[in-house]
């Protein structure tokens, strides 16, 4: 069954670009939900059927690291995989995200080919 995706990024432009890249990459997915920060993402995960989260790190209100930490404490949503899509590529930051359960990371900027290569196995 096609998987539903939650895009978490404070930039509406970036949410549109990721969404377009997923389509251009030819990946088979279901519905796409959107959230502007970690707080909105937690609310969305509690009420929608989401299979995969693609999240930015540098966001207002609740950033991607704080989101991972808070999500890990909520039994109902803690097992939903999260993939980071961010300009932050430092090994310390990505290492911290992975230690909090992130399944991997994709660097911005990215191309549809890169999206397909990195996210294809997840989707």
């Amino acid at each position: 069954m096609a998987k539903n995706i939650l895009l978490v990024d404070d930039s509406s432009t970036m949410r549109k670009i990721i969404s377009r890249s997923l389509r251009q990459a030819g990946l088979d997915f279901g519905e796409i939900f959107e959230a502007g920060d970690g707080l909105e993402a937690l609310e969305m995960l509690e009420k929608e059927s989401v299979d995969i989260v693609l999240s930015d790190i540098n966001m207002p209100n609740m950033n991607g690291i704080e989101f991972l930490r808070e999500k890990a404490n909520r039994d109902a949503i803690k097992d939903i995989p999260v993939f980071m899509i961010s300009t932050e590529t430092g090994e310390d930051i990505i290492g911290e995200a992975k230690s909090l359960g992130a399944a991997g990371a994709l660097k911005k900027p990215f191309t549809p080919d890169k999206v397909s290569e990195v996210l294809g196995p997840l989707v």
Binding site: S11, N58, S86, T87, E88, T89, G90, K107, K108, P109
Partner: peptide
């Protein structure tokens, strides 16, 4: 933001 991320890297 992307240029800043690259400059940081």
């Amino acid at each position: 933001n992307m240029l800043g991320g690259d400059l940081k890297a």
